[in-house]
Every structure is written in C-alpha cells, then in structure tokens.
C-alpha cells in the first residue's frame, strides 16, 4: 500500500512492545513530516544504546561502564541488597528516596508455565554476592503476584540462615479508598498491620 521504505519502517515499529500496526503507521507518518535531523538523532540514539549499554558486572542493572552508578557510589550502604525482577523496577524505589542500599536484578521471576526456572535467573550471582560477605540484609522486592511471590519464597529458603531476609510490605496504596480495595490486598494489609 505504501512505498517500500515506509512499509519497512511500519513493520519495524510494529515490532515494539505495545505498538500495533495502526500506531506504527502514525509514528511513521509523523517521522516523515519531521526534518531529517530528527530522524538521524533518533537512529543515532538507538544505535548508541545498543553499542554502549550493558549489564553491571555486580548487580545486572543497565550501565555504560563495568559497574553501574549505584554499585560505584561509595555513599550507598553496601550491606543492603534490594532484589528486583527488572532494571525498570529500580526507578520507583529510587523515586521514593528512602532507600540507600544496592540492588540485584534477577532478570525475571520464576514461572514454570513460561519455562523460567532458577537457572534462567541471576540467583547464583546473588548467592555469590552474599557469600562474599559484607551483606547484612537482602530485601526481596519482586512483584506482589504469583510468580513474584514464589520467587521470593524460593530465594528466602536459599538465603535463610546466611543473612537477614525481608520482603517488601504489601497492602493498601496511599490515597486509595478502602471501599474499593480487593479482598487479597485487604487481607495482606491486615496481616502486615503495624502498631502506632
């Protein structure tokens, strides 16, 4: 329907997560209207990110250097490791502003139905970090869903006795109405209640 280069661009864009063919067409036509420099800058940024970004040797967050900014920062508490599923999970924790420890990115969560077993995650690397010493507490911050919970239970079993293991609290979101909370969340909130 469109000239070959446009079709090719639409095909490539529609491979991106959350972008269907119609959205891909809209982006393609937007880029056609933009000056050549804008397209060149986007292309250069894409190539740059592929060439320069790799996984941190220690925590497996994204980094430009051998160690990421968190692992290089001597002001952060190296005795605390917060275990997350993906690098994107670090962002909300950092935005919260209360955590000053390090991270460990597993690269996913255990999911037998999807064929994700312990050897597919960076679990051994976490155990090696703990075994190397200096770690006082591991905070399990996997998602509060079935795969995240089973990953946390599995990790807690492996780490118990070696280091203090804690799990992120779960319950009612700040600003929400109790009336609209689901039963599972309310149950968790009651279990995790604290004294005032």
């Amino acid at each position: 329907m469109f000239p070959t280069p446009v079709e090719q661009l639409i095909t490539e864009l529609s491979r991106l997560p959350g972008i269907g063919r119609r959205s891909a067409q809209r982006i393609a036509f937007y880029m056609l209207r933009r000056p050549r420099e804008d397209a060149a800058a986007l292309a250069a940024a894409l190539i740059d990110v592929k060439d320069k970004i790799r996984f941190c040797r220690q925590c497996f967050n994204f980094t430009e250097e051998e160690l990421c900014g968190f692992c290089r920062d001597a002001r952060r508490d190296a005795g605390l490791i917060c275990v997350v599923e993906e690098p994107s999970d670090i962002i909300p924790i950092e935005k919260g502003g209360d955590y000053r420890g390090l991270y460990h990115v597993l690269g996913g969560a255990l999911s037998p139905l999807d064929g994700v077993d312990p050897e597919h995650l960076r679990i051994q690397e976490l155990l090696d970090r703990v075994a190397a010493g200096g770690v006082e507490e591991v905070i399990l911050a996997t998602n509060p869903n079935t795969t995240g919970e089973s990953t946390s239970i599995y990790l807690a079993d492996l780490l118990r006795g070696k280091v203090r293991v804690t799990r992120l609290a779960s319950g009612l979101p700040v600003g929400a109405d109790l009336e609209y909370a689901d039963e599972a969340t309310v149950s968790r909130a009651l279990l995790g209640r604290r004294e005032l």
Partner: peptide
C-alpha cells in the same frame, strides 16, 4: 497500575 480496582483479584486460581 497500583490503584487498579481489580488488583489482586486477578491472580491465578481466584
């Protein structure tokens, strides 16, 4: 989203 009204209702086995 954290504020979803469905939230924990959609975990397997529910």
């Amino acid at each position: 989203k954290v504020g979803s009204r469905f939230g924990g209702r959609l975990e397997p086995f529910t």
